[in-house]
Simulated scan of single mutants.
Amino acid sequence: MTSVLLYLHGFNSSPGSAKAQQMAAWVAANRPDIEAIIPAQPNTPAATWAAIEQTIANLQERYSSGFKLGAVGSSLGGFMATRVSERYGCRAVLINPAVRPHELLCDYLGPQTNPYSGEQYDLLPEHIEELTMLAVPVTAPERLWVLQQQGDEVLDYRKARDEYCFAHLSLECGGNHAFVAFERYPAQIVRFLGL
């Protein structure tokens, strides 16, 4: 059975982010049997979720006999990876995940520029409502592993610690939102995902 690792980047990020590239490089060098998919996601929440569902639908069509899915998500991608885990019953690794992003992103309403793509767009109140609608309760915390650094300057690590209190949690002192020394983790991530 084919194994697929779906990596979901965060808000105003891209497949070119350091963690996404480190994950892809490790898989290519050490587990070429795994198909690593790192899609460029739309800038708004409902469009992002629709794109994720389409990506998985394409995989289901391509691998009609089945495939094993594992998700990795960073920041807002961690929020989306939680939804993937709940919707598709797969394991997920969440890196400095955004918790209740509908509250967090209220501070970012207005014009935005993605620093990777240069794309400009407006983050609107309806996008905050989309995030609220996309939130899901965690019903299977054993399928989740949270990698969290206390030095995250963007997100309060305590929110993730509390939200995912029954999940597997690796909480590190120091670090930052980009997750310092992420290159230590790809092998462990793949093992946790069961790929």
Rank of each mutant, 00 (worst) to 15 (best):
G70N: 04
Y108D: 15
W145Q: 03
G118W: 08
A140R: 12
L76E: 01
T139V: 14
D107Q: 15
E163C: 12
K68R: 15
V93Q: 00
Q148C: 06
C173M: 14
F166D: 14
L131W: 04
I128Y: 11
I128L: 15
L123D: 07
E172N: 03
N176R: 02
A160D: 00
A167F: 10
G70R: 04
R100P: 00
R87W: 09
C106L: 15
Q120S: 11
Y164R: 04
S65F: 09
A178E: 14
L123E: 05
S65A: 13
A178D: 13
Q148W: 06
T113I: 12
D156I: 01
E163T: 14
Q148R: 11
Y121C: 01
A71C: 12
M80T: 08
C173S: 15
V136K: 10
L123K: 08
E153L: 11
H127I: 07
A167T: 07
G89N: 01
T55Q: 09
G175T: 01
V136A: 07
I95T: 03
A167M: 10
W145K: 02
T113E: 14
A135S: 09
R62A: 12
H168L: 13
G118N: 04
E172W: 13
R184H: 13
A98N: 08
G66P: 02
T113H: 09
T132H: 12
P186H: 06
M80K: 05
C90L: 07
L105I: 11
G118L: 03
R161L: 14
Y63S: 09
V99F: 02
I95K: 02
V136L: 02
E126K: 12
Q149I: 05
F79Y: 02
F166T: 10
G174Y: 00
A71R: 04
M80V: 02
L123W: 10
D156K: 03
Y63R: 12
S170T: 15
S64V: 09
L76D: 00
P101S: 08
H177G: 08
A57N: 06
E126Y: 14
S170Y: 06
L76Y: 07
E126I: 13
Q54F: 05
E129S: 11
Q148I: 11
D156R: 10
Y88Q: 03
L104H: 13
Q54E: 12
Q60L: 07
Q150A: 13
G89I: 09
Q120M: 10
V99D: 00
N114T: 01
G70E: 04
A181T: 12
L171T: 14
R87M: 08
V138D: 00
A51L: 11
N96L: 01
Q150E: 13
